Computed example of a mutant assay.
Amino acid sequence: MRLTVTTWNINSVRLRIDQVLRFLAETKPDVLCLQETKCPDDAFPLKAFRGSGYENVVFAGQKGYNGVAILSRFPLLTRDVMAFCERPDARHISAVLGPEAGAAAGIVLHDFYVPAGGDVPDRGLNPKFAHKLDFLDELRRWGGRRPRGPAILVGDLNVAPLEHDVWSHKQLLDVVSHTPHETERLETLRGEAGWIDTARLLTPEPEKIYTWWSYRSPDWAAADKGRRLDHAWVSPDLAGTVREVTVSRHARAWERPSDHVPVTLTLEL
Score class of each variant (00 low, 15 high):
residue 87 R to F: 01
residue 103 A to G: 07
residue 95 A to T: 14
residue 220 W to S: 05
residue 13 V to R: 05
residue 251 A to S: 11
residue 264 T to P: 13
residue 43 A to N: 03
residue 124 G to V: 06
residue 47 K to W: 13
residue 133 L to H: 05
residue 28 K to L: 00
residue 134 D to G: 04
residue 251 A to I: 14
residue 246 T to E: 08
residue 115 P to R: 14
residue 90 A to Q: 00
residue 191 G to N: 13
residue 75 P to N: 03
residue 37 T to Q: 00
residue 149 G to H: 12
residue 191 G to E: 09
residue 121 P to T: 11
residue 170 K to V: 12
residue 269 L to N: 04
residue 115 P to V: 11
residue 230 D to N: 08
residue 208 K to F: 06
residue 47 K to C: 07
residue 181 H to A: 06
residue 157 L to C: 03
residue 32 L to S: 02
residue 90 A to W: 11
residue 189 L to G: 02
residue 190 R to T: 09
residue 8 W to F: 10
residue 93 I to P: 11
residue 20 V to L: 11
residue 177 S to V: 15
residue 147 P to T: 07
residue 31 V to D: 05
residue 33 C to R: 01
residue 266 T to H: 12
residue 210 Y to D: 02
residue 171 Q to N: 05
residue 74 F to E: 03
residue 50 R to V: 15
residue 142 W to C: 06
residue 87 R to V: 02
residue 265 L to A: 02
residue 247 V to Q: 11
residue 36 E to Y: 09
residue 225 K to N: 06
residue 134 D to E: 12
residue 85 C to M: 03
residue 217 S to H: 09
residue 195 W to R: 10
residue 185 R to V: 06
residue 243 R to H: 01
residue 18 D to I: 00
residue 15 L to A: 15
residue 45 P to L: 01
residue 91 R to F: 12
residue 70 I to M: 13
residue 35 Q to T: 14
residue 106 G to M: 11
residue 216 R to Y: 10
residue 30 D to R: 15
residue 147 P to D: 01
residue 182 E to D: 13
residue 104 A to D: 03
residue 54 Y to G: 04
residue 32 L to F: 08
residue 100 E to G: 13
residue 181 H to V: 03
residue 102 G to L: 13
residue 100 E to M: 13
residue 86 E to V: 07
residue 42 D to R: 07
residue 168 S to P: 14
residue 49 F to M: 12
residue 146 R to H: 09
residue 125 L to R: 15
residue 72 S to G: 05
residue 150 P to M: 06
residue 53 G to C: 08
residue 118 G to Q: 08
residue 129 F to R: 03
residue 242 V to K: 02
residue 106 G to K: 09
residue 64 G to S: 11
residue 205 E to R: 03
residue 104 A to S: 13
residue 162 L to I: 02
residue 175 V to T: 15
residue 112 F to T: 07
residue 21 L to H: 04
residue 223 A to K: 15
residue 162 L to M: 06
residue 235 S to T: 15
residue 58 V to Y: 04
residue 120 V to R: 09
residue 222 A to P: 09
residue 193 A to Q: 05
residue 51 G to M: 02
residue 146 R to M: 11
residue 174 D to S: 14
residue 47 K to T: 14
residue 156 D to P: 15
residue 228 R to N: 08
residue 89 D to Y: 15
residue 255 E to R: 14
residue 56 N to R: 07
residue 51 G to R: 03
residue 7 T to V: 10
residue 133 L to W: 06
residue 238 L to M: 06
residue 205 E to G: 06
residue 240 G to Y: 00
residue 82 M to G: 00
residue 266 T to Q: 14
residue 33 C to H: 01
residue 28 K to W: 00
residue 136 L to I: 07
residue 6 T to N: 05
residue 149 G to S: 08
residue 247 V to Y: 05
residue 70 I to S: 04
